Amino acid sequence: MTTAELPAALVLPLAAVLGLVIGSFLNVVVWRVPRGESLVQPPSSCPGCGHQIRARDNVPVLSWLVLRGRCRDCGGSISARYPLVEAATAVLFVAVVSWAGVTWALPALLYLAAVALALALIDIDTKRLPNAIVLPSYPVALVLLALASLNPGGASDWGAYLRALIGGAALYVLYLVLVVVYPGGMGFGDVKLAGVLGLYLAWFGWAELVVGWFAAFLVGGVFAVGLLIAGKAGRKTGIPFGPWMLVGAGLGLIAGEPLAQWYLGLL
């Protein structure tokens, strides 16, 4: 049996468990990276009493439910965001595996899913996209997409890899021009993230790249207008754009080709 023939009954639960574990780590990333803290030391502890969290209290989602959202030592409240991030990562991983299947592109997509969730939360919290996450994503994406292009055991597709390099550079330059022309609209962190997303989107196709780029501005614009109408933001209110870039990229991957075919059909 090849990896492509693995039954969904086995693959999807494994994806969910992996997502829970990665989601637990993402909680550490989201909290520590913006503060410039180490991801490995010191061990996780209760912010209220400082007691180190026991191993049995670090089981994703389950430990929070067993403890009823309270620290075992001091009884202080533990934010529901922790289990929600873990559960969201599990759901995201299952969705990615369901959509992509078990292929050599899967590691690249799962990495993107994990990084996307962490960056979205950090940008919402701090209005920053840390270099510590974005910059290493370039070599990781290049290596994992090269593996997907090599496609061991199947037909290689180095044309997709070349397209990814061109698309990554193109989206980076496009966002750089936008920042130079209208510096108040977005930050340089968005420019650096654009290059990473361009690699992924273009690897799958030009339609995915175009739709992913356009969708970011569309959904971000709709959200901003909604906030204005609701009186939750003003014309000069800073709204993190990174999450919408990531949502747009997801829409580009999922709907890029079908939308392109639909549009060409109209013509």
Rank of each mutant, 00 (worst) to 15 (best):
residue 15 A to N: 07
residue 43 P to E: 04
residue 189 G to F: 03
residue 216 A to V: 07
residue 112 L to H: 05
residue 85 V to W: 09
residue 249 A to T: 15
residue 203 W to N: 05
residue 31 W to S: 09
residue 161 Y to N: 04
residue 162 L to G: 15
residue 66 V to S: 00
residue 260 A to S: 13
residue 156 S to G: 15
residue 91 V to L: 15
residue 178 L to G: 03
residue 116 A to T: 14
residue 14 L to V: 14
residue 108 A to G: 04
residue 101 G to Y: 09
residue 200 Y to I: 11
residue 86 E to T: 04
residue 229 I to T: 00
residue 32 R to V: 11
residue 90 A to S: 14
residue 24 S to I: 03
residue 150 L to R: 10
residue 177 V to H: 05
residue 154 G to N: 06
residue 128 R to N: 12
residue 197 L to K: 10
residue 171 L to C: 11
residue 108 A to M: 02
residue 145 L to P: 03
residue 228 L to H: 14
residue 7 P to A: 13
residue 35 R to I: 01
residue 267 L to C: 02
residue 114 A to C: 13
residue 38 S to Y: 06
residue 77 S to D: 11
residue 147 L to H: 00
residue 206 W to L: 14
residue 32 R to D: 04
residue 71 C to M: 07
residue 33 V to A: 06
residue 194 A to G: 06
residue 22 I to D: 00
residue 240 P to V: 05
residue 75 G to Q: 12
residue 203 W to S: 06
residue 59 V to P: 01
residue 240 P to T: 04
residue 244 W to Q: 12
residue 133 I to H: 04
residue 32 R to M: 11
residue 222 V to Y: 07
residue 158 W to N: 08
residue 56 R to Q: 10
residue 18 L to Q: 12
residue 20 L to Y: 03
residue 168 G to C: 04
residue 57 D to E: 11
residue 118 A to C: 02
residue 191 V to P: 01
residue 182 Y to V: 15
residue 110 L to W: 08
residue 13 P to Y: 10
residue 177 V to S: 05
residue 146 A to F: 12
residue 169 A to K: 08
residue 173 V to R: 10
residue 47 P to T: 05
residue 47 P to N: 09
residue 41 Q to L: 15
residue 98 S to N: 08
residue 183 P to C: 09
residue 262 W to R: 07
residue 197 L to C: 13
residue 33 V to R: 04
residue 232 K to V: 07
residue 82 Y to C: 02
residue 246 L to K: 06
residue 238 G to K: 13
residue 100 A to M: 06
residue 160 A to W: 04
residue 182 Y to M: 14
residue 221 G to Q: 02
residue 180 V to W: 15
residue 85 V to F: 11
residue 91 V to T: 10
residue 61 V to T: 09
residue 130 P to V: 02
residue 183 P to T: 10
residue 92 L to I: 00
residue 152 P to Y: 06
residue 129 L to Y: 02
residue 176 L to G: 15
residue 29 V to Y: 03
residue 56 R to A: 09
residue 36 G to Q: 14
residue 177 V to E: 01
residue 22 I to M: 09
residue 219 V to W: 11
residue 196 V to W: 05
residue 88 A to V: 12
residue 172 Y to G: 06
residue 238 G to C: 01
residue 44 S to N: 09
residue 67 L to I: 05
residue 190 D to N: 13
residue 86 E to S: 08
residue 211 V to Q: 07
residue 185 G to P: 14
residue 236 K to H: 15
residue 136 P to N: 01
residue 242 G to W: 07
residue 104 W to F: 13
residue 134 V to D: 08
residue 24 S to A: 14
residue 84 L to W: 07
residue 201 L to C: 11
residue 200 Y to S: 05
residue 59 V to K: 05
residue 266 L to V: 12
residue 208 E to F: 05
residue 254 I to D: 00
residue 262 W to N: 00
residue 74 C to R: 06
residue 214 F to Q: 12
residue 260 A to C: 09
residue 168 G to W: 08
residue 100 A to H: 02
residue 58 N to G: 03
residue 261 Q to M: 14
residue 267 L to I: 06
residue 174 L to V: 15
residue 60 P to N: 07
residue 29 V to Q: 05
residue 224 A to K: 06
residue 143 V to R: 01
